[in-house]
Measured scan of single mutants.
Amino acid sequence: EDPKKEILLAMLMVDKEKKGYVMASDLRSKLTSLGEKLTHKEVDDLFREADIEPNGKVKYDEFIHKITL
């Protein structure tokens, strides 16, 4: 499956209130437990690539855009 789609799906599952962003810690939890599970190192690399703080907010569109360039 398309990794971009899988990450967006994980974000939507976490963002039940439809705020347009999720906490990095919640996204990490989903990405390491769903679908093609990522390792913590892979998530760290994704966050670093997208300039996301480990305890920060992750906005869908910015995150998807940064990791798919």
Results as ranks from 00 to 15, higher is better:
E53W: 00
I7A: 15
R48M: 11
I64Y: 06
K16E: 09
A10C: 02
V22T: 05
V22S: 02
E53Y: 04
A50C: 11
I64N: 06
I64M: 09
S25Q: 15
K59F: 09
K19T: 15
M13Y: 04
S33M: 06
V22E: 04
D15A: 14
E17L: 04
V14A: 15
D44R: 00
E1V: 11
K19N: 13
Y21I: 09
D26Y: 05
L12R: 15
F63G: 03
R48K: 07
E42T: 01
D15R: 04
A10H: 11
G56R: 04
G56Y: 02
R48P: 00
A24N: 07
M11Q: 10
L34S: 12
K59A: 07
P54N: 09
F47L: 10
V22L: 06
D15Y: 07
L38V: 06
L34G: 13
D51H: 09
E62H: 00
F47P: 03
S29C: 10
P54F: 01
G35P: 09
L34Y: 12
E62F: 00
H65V: 00
L27C: 00
K37R: 08
G20M: 01
L12W: 04
D61N: 04
H40R: 08
V14T: 10
G56E: 10
L34V: 11
D44E: 06
G20A: 07
D15P: 06
G20P: 08
Y60M: 12
K16Q: 09
D61T: 09
G35R: 11
V43A: 02
M13P: 12
K37E: 10
E1Y: 03
K18W: 01
K16D: 03
A10R: 13
V22M: 10
E17N: 13
E17Y: 06
D26F: 00
H65P: 05
D61H: 04
N55S: 10
E17F: 04
I67N: 13
K5V: 07
E62L: 00
L9Q: 15
K59M: 10
Y21M: 11
I64L: 13
H65T: 11
A24Y: 07
E1Q: 15
L27I: 07
G56T: 12
F63T: 04
I52P: 01
T32W: 03
D2W: 03
G56V: 02
T68P: 14
D45T: 06
D26P: 00
K66L: 06
S33C: 09
L12P: 12
L9P: 09
E6C: 00
